[in-house]
Amino acid sequence: GKPSPELADQVLPATDVALSKLGSRDDRTRARLLRSRGTCLEALAELREALACYDEALSLDPKVGVKRRADALRKVV
């Protein structure tokens, strides 16, 4: 589900750190981190940024599990 804004504020910096330290060869993990980052951004009502994370995650791993969410956001933003 969607995290509370308070939880999203706590998790978002951790995803940024993890993404910055992750090697470029691990696309599946990067996609999952981007999915988590997008979920946090969506909880904070930063929809354009969330969609960008979802799209990047999908480009790395089409089975990351955010296609429907990204499609729904495209209709809103």
Results as ranks from 00 to 15, higher is better:
G38A: 09
L19C: 08
A45C: 06
S20C: 03
Q10F: 02
R37T: 02
V64K: 00
D26H: 11
A57T: 04
S4Q: 02
S59W: 04
K21F: 12
V76N: 07
L7G: 00
G65R: 08
C53S: 13
L34W: 04
L41M: 13
K21W: 10
V64W: 05
R69A: 15
A31T: 07
T39D: 12
L33G: 02
K2V: 10
A43F: 10
E49T: 09
V77A: 07
G23P: 01
T39K: 13
A50I: 06
L51E: 06
A57R: 01
A50H: 06
G65Q: 11
D71P: 00
Q10K: 10
E46V: 07
L19F: 09
R68F: 10
P3H: 03
K2A: 12
D61M: 05
G23D: 14
V17F: 04
V11P: 00
E49I: 00
R68S: 15
A50T: 04
R28K: 15
A72H: 12
D61R: 03
R37I: 07
E56W: 08
P13E: 06
C40T: 04
E6C: 00
S59H: 12
R37P: 00
R28Q: 15
E49G: 01
G23S: 13
E49Y: 01
R32C: 04
V66P: 01
T39S: 14
L12D: 06
L58V: 08
C40Q: 04
L12S: 06
A43E: 10
S59Q: 15
S20H: 10
G38M: 12
K21R: 15
K2F: 03
V66F: 08
K63C: 11
P13I: 05
R48W: 09
V66R: 00
A72D: 14
L73N: 05
T15V: 14
S4W: 00
L51T: 00
A70E: 09
L58W: 09
E49C: 03
S59C: 09
A72R: 11
T39E: 15
A50W: 05
S20L: 06
D16C: 11
R35Q: 12
A31N: 06
D9T: 12
R69V: 14
T15Q: 04
E6H: 03
V11T: 14
E42F: 09
L58C: 06
R35C: 11
V11N: 12
E6G: 06
R35N: 07
D27K: 14
L22N: 07
A45I: 02
K67M: 13
L60K: 01
R32L: 14
D26R: 05
K63A: 15
S24W: 03
D61F: 08
T29F: 05
K75M: 09
L44C: 10
K21H: 13
